[in-house]
Design a protein around this nucleic acid. Structure first.
Length: 201
DNA sequence: TAGTTGATCGTCT
DNA sequence: GACGATCAACTAA
């Protein structure tokens, strides 16, 4: 298993987004490991993308997006949820990839405990990390993780050669976007039961 | 199964 | 002051 290097993240955002499904998200949390396979992501293309937080330029909230690739951009939304993004490309571009869903592989009892804290009731394994807000909760990702270096030792992404080639990757319009006409910038593992919603491509 | 709604607050206009 | 890259519970059919 190989930790992804900085050069992986510095590539074109759509390329990074297409390559992320199938990779492993790893988190060291209080002496334990949390591991999940990324199954669903969305690309946000910075200044030229009306749906991106970076569309109107840099603000105190989104400044991490304008840093170099390979860092985590975490933001708070709807008054109750966090979402986590992988910053891509070189500094100044404001590009990122939102991680929307993960298949839990290790540390599931810790994930369950973290998810229960804010009152979730039914917790099948397919409900643990099947959405951007859910996976942040399950992995204990919040304000403190904003700006975390994915080339560090507490939170990173790795390749275990776990899934096959690009034929397994589906593609569809992004979810929850209302501004402008939508692009097919959502990438997911076809037929995977851990998606935030069925992957029709 | 599809559609609706309340919770809750940081961010930007 | 309005709204959002969401979630879970609820209703109707």
């Amino acid at each position: 298993m190989r930790k992804l290097s900085r050069s992986f993240y510095l590539r074109t955002t759509l390329t990074v987004a297409r390559d992320l499904p199938g990779k492993l998200l790893l988190r060291r949390l209080g002496g334990r490991f949390l591991i999940g396979r990324i199954v669903e992501v969305e690309a946000y293309l910075g200044r030229r993308d009306p749906a991106s937080h970076a569309y109107r330029g840099m603000t105190p909230r989104n400044e991490i997006m304008f840093g170099p690739g390979g860092h985590l951009y975490v933001y708070f939304t709807y008054g109750m949820h966090f979402c986590c993004n992988v910053v891509t490309e070189r500094a100044g571009t404001g590009c990122a990839v939102l991680i929307r869903a993960v298949e839990p592989l290790e540390g599931m009892t810790t994930m369950e405990r973290l998810r229960m804290r804010t009152g979730a009731r039914a917790l099948r394994s397919t409900d643990l990390c099947s959405g951007p807000g859910k996976l942040c909760q399950a992995f204990g990702i919040g304000r403190k993780e904003n700006g975390a270096d994915l080339c560090g030792t507490t939170l990173w992404i790795a390749d275990d050669g776990g899934t096959g080639g690009r034929r397994d990757i589906g593609r569809s319009p992004r979810i929850g976007i209302s501004s402008g006409r939508e692009h097919r910038w959502r990438f997911f593992l076809k037929g995977n039961p851990y998606l935030s919603r069925p992957g029709k491509s």
